[in-house]
Amino acid sequence: MHKAKMWLGIVAVMLLGFGARAEKQAPGFELPDVQGKTYKLADNLGKIVVLEWTNYDCPFVKKFYTAGAMQELQREAVARGVVWLSICSSAPGKQGHFERDEWLRRMQSAKVAVPVLLDPDGKVGRAYGAKTTPHMFVIDAEGRLVYQGGIDDQPSARAQSLEGARNYVREALQALWDGQPVPLAEAKPYGCSVKY
């Protein structure tokens, strides 16, 4: 019994060690967007960066895009100098993996104005420990991960759940803009699993 508990503890500590942890330096990466343009995290030092793991066919992602809530938050953030990068780690053949033209068509029809970076081998997704879509990461101007987790406190695919939801990303950005500590560094992400 005690042995089992000890092993459970060791496994738990090992699991905690995996993936990125809040307040740690954000793992560096270099990824192409759907048009082939390269984005490097290191190029954005000095700016706040939001990473949004996405899969346009996941119902939880659709909740935000169909209502325009994700695009609105993206616009709000970008208008204040934030670099917002959507990342798709769907492997070829899996849900959410598209060819260039399909990406452009979908981004245009959803009026998405932020780049979507492609991570088909899942390397960057695994470096960050991205589990779900959406799964959000906020990086401060010093390159530290100050928030990671779900986008809000409403694990639901229903559009009505957007109303009155506590949006952790908006909250983290507001805190950074106000020069305040981010109130919540981590929250449990919800949604579809990343289709590695």
Partner: peptide, 10 residues
Amino acid sequence: PPGDSGMAPR
């Protein structure tokens, strides 16, 4: 809780 992804019934 549902684990690494998913959603508990509401």
